[in-house]
Nucleic acid binder design. Structure first.
Lengths: 198, 198
DNA sequence: GCACTCGATGCACCGACTGCAGTTAATACC
DNA sequence: GGTATTAACTGCAGTCGGTGCATCGAGTGC
């Protein structure tokens, strides 16, 4: 990797690090982009070369995660279907070894601006899931609605469980799995086959 | 009703009307709060006496709707449980006699700022549903997660169906009902009883 | 008629975000 | 090694959403 690329990534990483720290220490609204930039040792203008919005700095790995999720759906590594994969991804995301993630989701529960950012995140996952389901079901008006509804519902479940896990430290995977199971059958593969001939 | 109150409501109504029109005609980002205010014949400062954000003007009846939803859950008029009630409310909201609502939801599909506003809306419904479920289940960490997950999932389904209905003009109630049914059993009253002893 | 309330206003201000015109250091090319 | 180019970073001026504050003036209660 280039020295330039490394510098760039380092700047980005530093910005994200200080952003999350300041959000946690003194609150999201009470932190200005200027403060973050100064703390990271760069100019305020530079902040926006790395993040589109102030809130985006709290989720610096968003693009990678979505890309990883999407490509995994495309190749054979997806365990069964996207909904199950979503659960697995979620479970992985709750690795207790990552205090950063816990901080992030605890903030998420308090700061509405970050919930908005998170909702935007979800929309990308939603697109990936919808695309996957539509590819399996074919593109009709009916399947499109169904795919959107299922994607929305799944993400709603996943998000709620994720936040709960981070906040209360409980294992929400069971709840997540149970609700998914109810909606889509055993290993969540029901909609891929049986819903079709409804 | 007072003449003052009437004036106030009229101002608010006019602002909302012009806001939605301008959003539709020239786009959300391309419309400034100043333009809306001028079109409505008031000052820009006044706009924020009626709406907290630019996007909020696109959903002027939000508070009433949430209040109505919440109180109905409290008294005996709720048909069974909040999830079923949500479906009914949704179906009512799709009254084809309301072109304004169609415009609103069609915008929703395009403008991310409005989706953020809508997500904020959903959070209020979510609170109402969670409160209702928790009252039925009792307040434990487990039930709290479950209630949040179910509320999120239901709203996800409802939102997707609502947008699809407004956009494609199809009847998405069937999809909505079907998915709810899968998750919660016949008239959606399963979680109130059977989930408890899982 | 008089005091009061309250919606509307103008003004100054903050902070998020953008476009543009540099500067400087790493890199590619010869 | 010297030179042209690229691209991260910077400063500045500007737009726009949103807020606090003092004020005006038309309704309202008495």
């Amino acid at each position: 990797m280039n020295q330039r690329e490394m510098q760039r990534l380092e700047t980005r990483r530093t910005l994200a690090e200080h952003a999350l720290r300041l959000f946690q220490e003194q609150g999201f609204d009470e932190t200005t982009v200027d403060e973050i930039a100064v703390a990271a040792g760069v100019s305020a203008r530079t902040f926006f070369l790395h993040f589109a919005t102030k809130a985006a700095a709290a989720f610096p790995d968003h693009d990678e995660r979505v890309a990883s999720f999407t490509t995994r759906l495309g190749d054979g590594h997806s365990p069964g279907n996207p909904l199950l994969h979503l659960c697995v991804t979620m479970a992985g995301g709750l690795d207790p070894g990552s205090p950063t993630r816990r901080i992030r989701y605890r903030l998420l529960d308090k700061v509405s601006a970050l919930r908005d950012e998170d909702a935007r995140t979800d929309r990308d996952y939603e697109q990936a899931i919808v695309a996957y389901l539509m590819q399996a079901w074919g593109d009709t008006v009916e399947t499109r609605v169904r795919a959107n509804a299922i994607a929305n519902a799944s993400l709603g479940i996943a998000r709620a469980c994720l936040i709960a896990s981070s906040k209360d430290g409980i294992d929400a995977n069971e709840v997540c799995f149970d609700l998914m199971h109810r909606m889509f059958g055993s290993p969540f593969d029901v909609p891929l086959h049986s819903l079709k001939q409804d």
